[in-house]
Design a protein around this nucleic acid. Structure first.
Length: 421
DNA sequence: TCTGGGGTCCTAGGACCC
DNA sequence: TCTGGGGTCCTAGGACCC
């Protein structure tokens, strides 16, 4: 039976920022979400002084000043770059790996071939620390769900040296009993509330619920979670990424607006970004969604959504932008204060799969080829010269947005998205 | 005053057909 | 006029993850 490992980077975004600011070691540090909205990563020191995860920044500004907490605006391109390096080290040390998220990888270990899986995992963690520079915690267990709990244990207990292994037995039973049910992978806030009302407040009680009860109240996923807590693996490691099914691009505005002009600019920018990402995967979309929304903190919320379905799947930015702006015109209502807009691309087909030529419905093949080659050239130039060297006329350069652009008051000059290229 | 962004999956219910 | 069952497809909503 293989052992499943989970490698989880500690305080990942803060750890990334500290790579460029070694002076911030042992200091309280936080990283904010887009638009400087919420706290999304905290150093141990920031956790210790009571800054909660996900808290709106304005609510913690007092404590930030009092304790001289260092604050960073988000720099996602940097975190993705570091993430790739961590994933690569793990891939070089385990037969099967799954890049599960920006700061986590699952991997398998062949127990028979290793004298001590724990020692092997400790070496792996040490290698990541030396080669990439970020600290990690590693959990080992027969299932993904237990590996998550093991990694969490390792993170909280210094004496584990960053690695903890869980196997079914009395020790695991005791750990599950101490674990609030909401800390189990797959149990979110809604289910945790429900389970607490059902006198199932810890992981052990969840594990011991009958199958039909789990299936009935928590769907097939809850049943899988129950089995995984018992040590029966039913969520396999995915070594290849399945093709993506949708692409979303959305942003909150730096300030609310009642005008359509800045929103047109925003939607143009989002479609352009989404289309570029889609083409990078060799895909075209049949469906485009556009939405705008008023603040969810000031009801009543209005969030009109419109969609466009293309007869022939599209990846050509001008086609997508034109369609998106038409949809925006349809859904936009005067007099509302909008705080955010977004677009979605979905129902993909592969670029190479030519549609049947239907006069009036699709492009003639020559024109289609011309547009495809044109977008390939644009994407290539933008990759070399930096993002947005060539962009739609209606799309502003970064930092030149007409009012809707995000707030980034804590950007660090030395960790721009090009710093590592 | 200020409250993130990007994904996937599952289920129920309605429409429609035979 | 009344009566039924089963299948598929689509969508919206809700749940979860990071």
């Amino acid at each position: 039976m293989p052992l499943i490992g989970l490698c989880d980077c500690n305080n990942f975004f803060v750890s990334c920022e500290r790579l460029f600011r070694p002076d911030l070691k042992d200091r309280p540090v936080i990283v904010l979400s887009s638009n400087d909205g919420c706290v999304i990563s905290r150093s141990n020191e920031a956790k210790a002084i009571g800054i909660p995860m996900g808290e709106p920044f304005f609510k913690v500004e007092g404590i930030v000043k009092a304790y001289k907490v260092h604050v960073f605006s988000t720099n996602f391109p940097l975190y993705e770059d570091i993430s790739k390096r961590v994933h690569a080290v793990i891939r070089a040390h385990a037969p099967e790996t799954e890049d599960y998220s920006v700061d986590e990888s699952f991997f398998s270990l062949d127990i028979a071939a290793l004298r001590s899986p724990e020692a092997y995992a400790r070496t792996l963690g040490e290698t990541i620390r030396r080669w990439v520079g970020v600290p990690v915690s590693i959990g080992l267990a027969p299932t993904k769900t237990l590996a998550k709990l093991a990694a969490e244990y390792a993170k909280k207990h210094a004496e584990t040296n960053g690695v903890h292994r869980l196997e079914p037995g009395a020790e695991l039973d005791a750990l599950l009993e101490r674990t609030p049910v909401g800390d189990v992978w797959g149990v979110g806030r809604r289910y945790a509330d429900f389970l607490n009302r059902c006198n199932t407040g810890n992981a052990r009680k969840l594990r011991d619920k009958p199958d039909d009860w789990l299936r009935r109240h928590l769907t097939i996923r809850g049943l899988q979670t129950g089995w995984e807590l018992r040590g029966v693996s039913c969520i396999p490691i995915r070594t290849t990424d399945p093709p993506q099914k949708s692409i979303q691009v959305s942003r909150s505005f730096g300030a609310p607006t009642t005008m359509i002009e800045p929103i047109r600019e925003a939607v143009t920018t989002f479609v352009s970004r989404g289309a570029e990402k889609m083409r990078a995967q060799g895909m075209r979309a049949r469906v485009l969604h556009v939405y705008i929304t008023t603040s969810r903190f000031h009801p009543p919320v209005t969030c009109p959504v419109g969609r466009m379905t293309f007869e022939a799947p599209a990846s050509y930015t001008p086609t997508l932008v034109t369609a998106a702006l038409d949809v925006l015109d349809e859904i936009f209502v005067r007099g509302e204060w909008y705080v955010k807009a977004g677009i979605g691309l979905s129902e993909f087909s592969e670029e190479g799969q030519r549609q049947l030529f239907l006069p009036g419905a699709s492009l003639d093949p020559q024109e289609d080829d011309r547009r495809t080659r044109y977008m390939e050239a644009v994407d290539r130039i933008n990759r070399v010269l930096g993002q947005d060297a060539i962009r739609p006329a209606a799309m502003p350069a970064r930092g030149k947005e007409s009012g809707w652009g995000p707030r980034r008051d804590h950007e660090s000059p030395e960790t721009t998205e090009h710093s590592l290229r």
